[in-house]
């Protein structure tokens, strides 16, 4: 057993006693009851389980939770799909996903939302030229599997958010 304390969506949680071989995915879903983070493959292949990890240096990245021990998240700060909207106000990306009909069954949506949000935040710090935008989006989202949509409307939504505020995300 290991002791685990962490920040989830800005709230400090713990300490918890967790099994060394408990996955972060099971910690979130079974122990915290936070099932917005999905379980799809358990092998880091579909990334529906990815959460955002906010690093002390100010950078953020997504991390699959199904292949990582919960204990490895001790002291870390994560964001999950449950934490994007504040006081019922959706983020631009959440709104774009809805308005573009990006998802169908919605099971892969948490992963795409987290990945797309990390991309937006990265572009805000490191804008890219318009001409590379489609390729940048494609590279960022390619790890995520979706069986319903053919991905088109996810890419459209992310692009729409960026183009709607081009000065922020593009050079």
């Amino acid at each position: 057993m290991t002791t685990l304390s962490l920040s989830v969506n800005g709230r400090t949680l713990g300490p918890f006693e967790v099994r060394d071989d408990l996955t972060m995915n099971d910690f979130l879903r079974e122990q915290l009851g936070m099932t917005g983070t999905k379980f799809g493959c358990g092998a880091a292949q579909c990334l529906s389980c990815a959460v955002i990890v906010d690093m002390p240096d100010g950078s953020s990245h997504t991390n699959p939770t199904c292949v990582v021990p919960a204990a490895n998240f001790d002291g870390k700060a994560i964001r999950t799909i449950e934490g994007h909207a504040k006081d019922g106000v959706l983020t631009p990306l959440q709104t774009a996903f809805i308005e573009h009909f990006s998802f169908q069954c919605g099971y892969c949506t948490p992963g795409f939302l987290n990945e797309g949000q990390v991309l937006l935040e990265r572009l805000e710090k490191t804008p890219v030229p318009r001409a590379t935008l489609e390729a940048v989006i494609a590279e960022a989202l390619d790890g995520h599997l979706c069986r319903c949509t053919g991905y088109v409307k996810y890419h459209e939504a992310v692009r729409a958010v960026i183009l709607a505020d081009a000065g922020r995300y593009l050079v």
């Binding site: 936070m34 994007h84 809805i98 308005e99 009909f101 949506t109």
Partner: peptide, 13 residues
């Protein structure tokens, strides 16, 4: 715009 299940699905309900 959007699906009736839109908000639920982007907020992890």
């Amino acid at each position: 715009l959007g699906r009736v299940d839109g908000v639920a699905k982007v907020t992890g309900a």
